[in-house]
Design a protein around this nucleic acid. Sequence first.
DNA 1: TGCCAGGCCGGGT
DNA 2: ACCCGGCATGGC
Length: 226
Amino acid sequence: MRSLDPISLYEGLFAALGPQEWWPARTKFEVIVGAVLVQNTAWKNVERAITNLRKAKKLTPRALAAMPQDELSELIRPAGYYRMKARRLKNVVGFITEQYGGSLKRMFATPLPELREALLAIHGVGPETADSILLYAGDLPSFVIDAYTLRILRRHGWAGETDGYAELKQFFEDRLPADAALFNEYHAMFVRIGHLYCRREAKCEACPLRDTLPSLRPLRRNIRAP
DNA sequence: TGCCAGGCCGGGT
DNA sequence: ACCCGGCATGGC
């Protein structure tokens, strides 16, 4: 991570990409469901599953909790790993129901570190899923690292091979103001870059990071996302 | 046509 | 503390 100034990188990304308006979801609960469904899965497939759930009117904690797991797994089938993910969704809604009476409002009123630990204790919720829920559903400043972030940071030599999720998360959180809107925009831009320029088919030469970044310097102090 | 996507878990070194 | 196989559908 040496030689990476996260604020310069943010400014470079934002200048190149603009606001991302993430997470693509209509409700907070839909974000939570999506966060589980997208585990190692293309978002396109998740959309189908979400659509099925919406049409079936199952996009609330209570409706999901009341549904048989087999029925749930059929609805989310397009997202892949559907049996496992049905179980995981059940675990998450069980947690919301038992701990907070099904109220996301109450859940997200929990102090961030405490809630994060609680989420990680749910079977099927790992660091990225937990942080995505905290940030994108809860508007809580928990920086999300994902495969794209890791790949981009490594490809540019900013992250070493030994840097893992915890190290990278810590790195950004230590150097940025704890602002959910900023973390939101930042991670969303990493994913966008990943999608467009950092996949197998995509061209690395077209990546905005390629030319803009080396010439970047910290210019402004106010880096709030729109 | 294969390879792989916005992970996570469990069992083995 | 790592490393690996399993989990599954759909798109390019």
